Amino acid sequence: MNLHGLEFPDTLRYAPEHSLWLREEDDGSVTLGLTAYGCALYGQIFAFTPKRVGMRIERDRGFGVVEFAKAAASARSPLTGELLAVNEALRERPSLINRDCYGEGWMARLQPLDWPAIRDQFPQGETALVAIAERMRLDNFDPANVHVQALQWK
């Protein structure tokens, strides 16, 4: 799926207000990563400092810090759960998030509380695209902005 030149795989679930994608794993855990839209908003990422594996992460609380040009932001979880794993490759190569946000640039894996009860809160497919488009509208996202165009995920 494509929106304003940004890709959004239809097999993933999305948390548009967090600019994150979610992938259900076979063991019941959920992998999180920054969407192409999140990458466009942040620009080049220089560091990702995750919380410690084993910590309980509350919904809307940080699971790590993303550092980008002259600023940093908390990567907030859309889920409550235990932090099972972090992408250690990002310590040495945080640019993986920009280069392959839906693959090698994944950020964290959580064991969410009561995933079956909340999974449908995270849209996928065309429903996700509508929700992401609304988030872009609320953010006053301007795809014609030349600075944004340079950040589009490829």
Rank of each mutant, 00 (worst) to 15 (best):
Glu58Ser: 13
Leu83Lys: 10
Glu92Val: 10
Ala85Arg: 14
Arg109Cys: 01
Gln111Glu: 15
Gly33Leu: 09
Ile45Asn: 02
Met136Arg: 03
Arg109Trp: 00
Glu126Leu: 11
Val148Tyr: 10
Thr80Leu: 12
Ser29Thr: 15
Asp10Ile: 15
Asn87Ala: 08
Glu17Leu: 03
Gly103Asp: 09
Pro78Asp: 12
Asp27His: 11
Gln44Tyr: 03
Cys39Tyr: 03
Thr11Met: 08
Val65Phe: 05
Phe8Thr: 14
Asn87Gln: 08
Ser19Val: 05
Val146His: 07
Phe68Lys: 03
Asn140Gln: 14
Leu129Met: 14
Phe68Met: 05
Trp21Thr: 01
Arg99Ser: 08
Arg56Met: 10
Arg135Cys: 03
Glu134Ser: 12
Leu32Asn: 00
Lys154Gly: 14
Leu90Ser: 08
Glu67Ala: 13
Gly28Ile: 08
Thr35Arg: 00
Glu25Phe: 04
Arg13Phe: 00
Leu96Cys: 11
Asp100Ser: 15
Arg135Glu: 05
Lys70Asn: 15
Ala117Trp: 02
Gln149Cys: 04
Val146Phe: 08
Ala133Gln: 08
Glu25Gly: 02
Gly81Trp: 04
Pro9Arg: 03
Arg52Glu: 14
Ile45Thr: 05
Asp120Cys: 11
Cys101Lys: 00
Leu34Thr: 12
Val86Pro: 02
Gln44Arg: 10
Thr11Val: 07
Asp100Lys: 10
Asp120Ser: 15
Tyr102Glu: 11
Ala131Val: 07
Val130Pro: 06
Ile132His: 06
Arg91Glu: 15
Thr31Ala: 05
Ala117Ser: 12
Leu41Phe: 06
Gly64His: 00
Phe63Met: 05
Pro78Leu: 13
Trp153Ala: 09
Phe68Gly: 00
Ala36Trp: 02
Glu104Ala: 12
Arg119Leu: 01
Ala144Ile: 06
Gln44Lys: 14
Arg52Trp: 11
Ala131Lys: 09
Arg135Tyr: 01
Arg13Gly: 02
Val148Gly: 09
Asn87Glu: 07
Leu20Asn: 00
His147Cys: 11
Ala85Leu: 12
Met55Thr: 09
Pro112Phe: 10
Val148Gln: 08
Phe68Trp: 07
Gln111Ser: 15
Arg61Ile: 02
Phe8Lys: 14
Ala69Tyr: 12
Met136Leu: 09
Ile57Ser: 02
Arg13Leu: 06
Asn145Pro: 08
Pro123Gly: 10
Ala131Tyr: 09
Lys70Glu: 10
Arg99Trp: 02
Arg91Lys: 15
Gln152Gly: 11
Val146Lys: 04
Val146Met: 04
Asn145Gln: 13
Pro116Leu: 12
